[in-house]
Design a protein around this nucleic acid. Structure first.
Length: 186
DNA sequence: TACGTGATTACC
DNA sequence: GTAATCACGTAA
């Protein structure tokens, strides 16, 4: 097990990063979770990516290094957490969609107001709430943080499927999750 | 199945 | 200025 660095998000494509992160650990200020679900968004050629319809997202990609957190408010309610990728085939984002809670579970329960472990981080908006992530994390190099980052890990079996909750580019099988894991979303 | 909620964008 | 859209979660 070793800490992931920006280099990881430069050596692999966005899709490869999304797949490879399944099984890795996500550390955030005392809380820890195993990544069990992700999605890839490509900055070029992917109509579902923010870069396709948001100037601010394009500016963000152009002005930040790989490994930077891209955090935004969705539906006016939910913060969603992404990692910026500058891969060999182009840039993009990996969206963290679900975690298997490993540490700081009491704190997650407080923030979520739920007591079942599989309901704490089983969705992109749920996991940010559980870990206390909000807009302050946007633009930060969290991989290098003292109490934030990612650590390599393995997954028994990774399944790919279509991305959830989007209206464009629904044909790309860029959602990845660990098979038969109760902590994946919906 | 319905809807809150607010940032961002396009277009007056 | 207005209106549409939106990588969701919850209650019902």
């Amino acid at each position: 097990m070793e800490r992931l660095t920006a280099g990881f998000f430069e050596r692999h494509s966005v899709v490869d990063c999304a797949r490879a992160l399944i099984g890795a650990k996500f550390l955030w200020n005392g809380c820890e979770g195993r990544i069990v679900e992700t999605e890839a968004y490509a900055a070029e050629g992917d109509e579902a990516c923010h870069t396709f319809f948001r100037q601010g997202a394009r500016a963000f990609v152009a002005s930040h290094p790989a490994g930077t957190a891209y955090v935004y408010l969705n539906y006016g309610v939910h913060w969603l957490f992404n990692v910026l990728v500058h891969g060999p085939q182009g840039s993009g984002f990996v969206l963290l969609r679900a975690l298997e809670p490993l540490a700081g579970i009491e704190r997650m329960m407080e923030r979520r107001g739920k007591s079942k472990v599989h309901e704490l981080c089983s969705g992109p908006g749920k996991l940010t709430r559980a870990l206390g992530i909000d807009g302050d994390a946007h633009g930060t190099p969290f991989l290098d943080g003292e109490s934030t980052g990612m650590v390599t890990g393995v997954s028994a079996s990774v399944v790919s499927s279509f991305r959830i909750g989007i209206s464009r580019a629904q044909d790309l099988p860029w959602r990845f999750h660990e098979d038969a894991n109760i902590h994946v979303s919906r």
